[in-house]
Nucleic acid binder design. Sequence first.
DNA 1: ATATTTTTTTAGATTTGTCTAAAAAAATAT
DNA 2: ATATTTTTTTAGACAAATCTAAAAAAATAT
Lengths: 217, 217
Amino acid sequence: MQSFTIENYLKKIYHLTQRENKPVQTNAIADGMNTSAASVTDMIKKLSAKKLVNYTKYQGVTLTEEGNKKAINIIRKHRLWEVFLVNTLHFKWDEVHEIADQLEHVKSDVLIDRLEKHLNYPITDPHGDLIPDKNGLFKDVNFKPLNLLHQNQEATIVGVSEHSSSFLKRLEELNLIIGQKITFINVVDFDNSIEIKILDNQINISKEIAKNILITI
Amino acid sequence: MQSFTIENYLKKIYHLTQRENKPVQTNAIADGMNTSAASVTDMIKKLSAKKLVNYTKYQGVTLTEEGNKKAINIIRKHRLWEVFLVNTLHFKWDEVHEIADQLEHVKSDVLIDRLEKHLNYPITDPHGDLIPDKNGLFKDVNFKPLNLLHQNQEATIVGVSEHSSSFLKRLEELNLIIGQKITFINVVDFDNSIEIKILDNQINISKEIAKNILITI
DNA sequence: ATATTTTTTTAGATTTGTCTAAAAAAATAT
DNA sequence: ATATTTTTTTAGACAAATCTAAAAAAATAT
C-alpha cells in the first residue's frame, strides 16, 4: 500500500518556504495540512532520515536539494493536470484544484511527457502559475501584484496568488480573468481599495482582491 | 491517508468471480494480488463487515450487490482512462494497464463524465472490453473466442481476454488487431493450433493465442 | 475409514501515519 | 531577570494493512 503522505508534505513545505526564504515552523505545516503538530514532528523526522528536509530540533525545516526537486516535480504534474482539466475537459478554473491534487500523485514520467505534448507545452496553469519544465526550471517572468501599479499604468492580468474557489468565482464576476487588460487609476485613501478601468468601466476592488491578482506591464 | 486497498480487492474479486459464477477462494485472491492468504482473510472480514462481500468461513467470497456496483464503477473508470491514454495521448494498447490502475482510483464523478464525453462515449476499451455505463450496465454484445469458430467462417476481431504486454505485442506482430477481418480455416490435430486466413495470407496460431482473441461474426 | 495434503484461519508481530496528554524548549512580556 | 505564553517534542496508544508460523478445517488419496 503506497501513500501520498510524503509527497503532500514536500509540496506543503515547498509552498510555505517559497514566499519567505526561511525555515517553516512545525505549527505552520500542521495548520496547512489539517493535522497535529505532533504528527508533523514525527513525519519531519522521517523526511529528515530520507534526506528530503534539513531539520534541527525546534528550528523548523527547509527542503534539501533532493526534497526540492521532488516537490517541484509534483507541482509540475499538478499544474499540467490543471491545464488538462480546463483546456481538454472544459472545467472552470475554480473547479480543478481538488482533482489535480489527486492526479498529481500518479506515477509515470512518460504519461506527463505525453500530457505536456498534448497540451502543447503550456507555460502557465489556468491560474497563471508557472509550470516548471522536466528539469525543474521555471521560466523567468515578471509578474507582480496589481496593487503595486502606479497611476494610469496599463497592465494585463496574467495570474492569481490565491486559489480558493470563492476568490476565483468573484474574479469572474468582475471580468478579472487572465488576459484581461486593465488600467490602474488610484488608491482610495479611506480603505485602501483600488479604482481600476476595465472594459471601459471604472470599478473599485478591495486591497485583498488587488494584491492577489498578478499582472505584467 | 486514504488507500486504494478496498477498491483493489473488489476489482480482483469481481474479475475472479466473473468467468465462473461461484465463490472465489482465499488463495486465488492471494495469488492474484501478490499477498498472503492470511492477509486476504483479514481483509475479507473487513469487506464483509462493510457488507461488500458475502463470506462464510472456509467457503470463499462473492460480491454483494453493493460490492458489485463499486467494482463495476472502478472498472468503468479504468477502461475510460485506457481509452484516453490510447486515443488522446497516443499510447499503445500494451502500455496503458499500469497507468490506468492508478488513474482508476481518482475520485470525482464529474471528471469521469467529462472524460467520457471528451472520448465520445466509447463502448469498448482499447482491448475490446466493454465499458459499463454510469448505472453499471454493459451493452449486450456477442463476442466469443476465436477458437470456437467453424470451418470457413469469417469474423472480425473485436477484443482480447488476456492483457499482458507480451501477448498484445505478439498480436500486433501477427496483425491480429481490433477491427481485423479473418477467416477460420481449420484446427491442426497434432497440437490443436489453428490455421486462419488474414490479409490474404494463411497463418498458424497456437490454441493459447486463439482462445484469448475475441471475435464477432 | 483413515491418513495425507491442501486450504484457510488464528495468533501475534510489524510498519505507517496518526492521535492526545504531558514535558521541554524557545519566545515574549513584565 | 524572571514569569508567562507559545511552540515543539516526547511518550504512549491506536487503526490499517500487512507478515510469518502454527492450528484448524476441508479436500483428496489410499
